[in-house]
Design a protein around this nucleic acid. Structure first.
Length: 192
DNA sequence: CGCCAGATTGACT
DNA sequence: GTCAATCTGGCGG
């Protein structure tokens, strides 16, 4: 049992709070006897019916229903042949999720390079589709939890210092009048 | 079944 | 900066 494991209560808060809080944390991906690790560099917060950029905006569908799930569960969907990895995060009885947009590769780097078919460290996981490929993330993880250290993916606390940058969200058609993208300022693994 | 849009990526001018 | 490939899921007929 890793005492630094982030539990459900961490995710049961306003999505933008959780999005900031996830920066600098360590994500651990396990499958078979392989363990891959990365530092969370960039996140975005999404809400429910008040957020036109959210997959939950038009109500519950088959493909987005896990966004209504337990805080700390996984929400995955596809955009242009890329799997978007989200962690469900919202206050009690609300809807929301955090999109993980970039990682700094820490462990299992050779495996990640093979998964991505590139050698440049900065190209391995700096982008939501890229990090999913690097970590073998696809639809099969949808609705599973990250709050157990027996999970295929979980997140642990990390004691590092950094400054946080913010911006509007990337790639969305209609954004809210609030900056909901967060990243570690000056870090070279931030997506473009 | 066909059509279309999308929280992207990679290649290129 | 521009642009098209590629695929999943929703929706209409």
């Amino acid at each position: 049992m890793d005492l630094r494991l982030l539990k459900k209560r961490f995710y049961e808060r306003d999505p933008k709070i959780v999005a900031r809080g996830l920066l600098g944390k360590k994500i651990v991906r396990r499958f078979g006897n392989i363990s891959l690790e990365g530092l969370i560099i960039e996140t975005e917060a999404y809400y429910g019916s008040k957020d036109p950029a959210s997959r939950a905006f038009y109500g519950m569908k088959n493909y987005n229903k896990s966004m209504w799930g337990e805080p700390g569960s996984i929400f995955i969907y596809n955009v242009h042949n890329n799997w978007m990895f989200n962690i469900v995060a919202h206050e009690f009885r609300k809807v929301g999720a955090i999109l993980i947009r970039a990682l700094e590769p820490l462990k299992g780097i050779e495996v990640m390079k093979v998964n991505r078919g590139v050698g440049d460290l900065r190209l391995i996981a700096s982008g939501p589709g890229r990090l999913s490929r690097a970590l073998n993330i696809d639809k099969s993880l949808n609705n599973k939890t990250v709050t157990s250290d027996h999970s295929e993916i979980f997140i642990v606390d990390n004691n590092i210092e950094f400054d946080i940058g913010t911006s509007y969200r990337i790639g969305v058609k209609i954004d809210l009048d609030e900056k909901l993208r967060f990243f570690i300022k000056g870090n070279k693994y931030v997506s473009r």
